[in-house]
Amino acid sequence: MPCRAIHISGTHPMRVTLFVPCFIDSLYPNVGMSMVRVLEHLGHSVEFPEEQTCCGQPPFNSGYWDEARAVASKQLDVFKNAEIILSGSGSCGAMFKVFYPELFHGHDREAEAKALSAKTWEFSEFLVNKLGVKDVGARFDGKATFHDGCHGLRELGTKHAPRELLSHVKGLELVEMSEAETCCGFGGTFAVKYPQISTAMAEVKCNSICETKADFVISNDSSCLMQIGGWLDRNIGSVKCLHLAEVLASR
């Protein structure tokens, strides 16, 4: 049931365009829907251009920049008229925001890439720093720890915004793990090109998660959660992964 729009933040209603990366679309649709619910709850309109596909990060990170540019070019078309672009994955957000300008440096569409970069926000940063929202009125009962996705943390500088939002979620107890900023070992194609190294990294991460005795691990990056969840489900079973948006959409 759609929420009745209540206008919590002091800003005027915005038209927000979602970038829902390919794997969230297929594997984690609830993450996207949760973002929709939170944004509509705050009184903003959400749109999702159906023509979007992938940000192009897989070929980009593999060194095939021509192919990446071809894919990225498509997204420049798709998001041309967006005012605000929100990504549910810090990693794909970083691709838009940080790497598109580099990918298109010296190419025809450099100016468009820079413009796209300027409009792109990570979900929690948008809520806290653009909208000035700290409390989205969520309730979630449980003990959780937060994983900082590397791209969100180091490319986009997101550290405090998700914690700020989570600190206002009723019923939620947030405990920090010692390795919060340590990479989970996903790294895109790295996870399948070097599975043993990637898995050793996941083990370090998950041991740190388990040390907190949390029931949930929350992150703002679904790709990390795929890795963390993949290891936890195989080896532990009891700790559940949730995207920040899913927690914020809980009532």
Partner: peptide, 14 residues
């Protein structure tokens, strides 16, 4: 070989 692969729900985000 070392991790579970997530299950794709029937209905995508789209």
């Amino acid at each position: 070989s070392t991790r579970e692969f997530p299950h794709a729900p029937m209905r995508s985000f789209r």
